[in-house]
Computed example of a mutant assay.
Amino acid sequence: MSDPDTRRAEAFSDAVLAIVITLLVLDLHPPPERPGTLLTKLLHQWPTYVAYVASYLYVAVVWLNHKAAFCRVRVMDRGLHWANLAVLFSTALLPWPTAMVSTAIAEGAGSDARVAVAVYALVGVLTSLAWLALFHHLGRHPELAWEHVAENFFSLERVRALVGIVLYTAAGLVGALLHPLTALAVFCFLPLFYGVTSHGLTELSGPLRRFLPRGRGHGG
């Protein structure tokens, strides 16, 4: 059964993502300090700032990608509703590993930091899997999209989701087995990648576009 009104799903998704961003900032606490040591304590909290920036970018890019996808969706069905809820479920988990990563690295607990980045990477994999399910469903049901959307648009979007699955898995393994800071670098890079490609691979210009399969229509 199709629902011709996508606005409720979009409004609910916006509300959930706004709450997630609010929860992220709650992890920024003024450090306990003796008089004259505030600057030192603030600098010591650098892992908290890096984790916050990486996670804020993560949620911001989820919002951008969500907006770009739903600009192309004409009607909803039950499968798309559940795929959208899965994206929100996995994204809403983000404040939890963010707090773990920032605390473990700031306290210099090597084993805890490895576990924390592995959990963060796992949440990234879950989110990428949720996006993969959403794009797969839209690719199998082109009748849910507007007529002007390219036939291969959502099929190509699955490639972006697979990139996330591979890189978050690799980052989690490297961070857990070698060095957590390497995983943090990947966590900061991936939102940038998804931000640049938020309107889809078919919207990229330049040499890369020549290697992409062509479909009828355009990306909207």
Rank of each mutant, 00 (worst) to 15 (best):
V50S: 14
T6N: 05
L28A: 09
K67D: 12
S55R: 00
H179A: 08
G79Y: 08
F187T: 01
L126V: 11
P97M: 04
G110W: 07
A60G: 10
L156N: 11
H44A: 08
F12Q: 10
G195T: 10
F211G: 02
V115G: 00
L129F: 06
D14I: 06
L192R: 01
V73W: 04
L38P: 00
K41V: 12
L184G: 00
M1F: 06
A109W: 06
P191S: 03
L57Y: 02
L162N: 00
W96E: 07
V61F: 02
G219I: 00
L134V: 06
E107I: 04
G108S: 06
H137K: 06
A185M: 10
L192F: 10
V87P: 03
S102P: 01
V166D: 15
G124H: 01
A113Y: 04
L181N: 13
V87R: 00
A18V: 08
P47S: 08
L17W: 06
F193M: 11
H136G: 11
T37C: 02
A109S: 11
T40Y: 14
R216E: 14
L134S: 15
A183R: 01
S198A: 10
D14Y: 05
L208V: 14
F153W: 05
F189E: 15
V101S: 04
T98P: 01
S198W: 15
A86Q: 02
F193E: 12
H141Q: 13
L204Y: 12
A83Q: 02
G172D: 12
T22I: 04
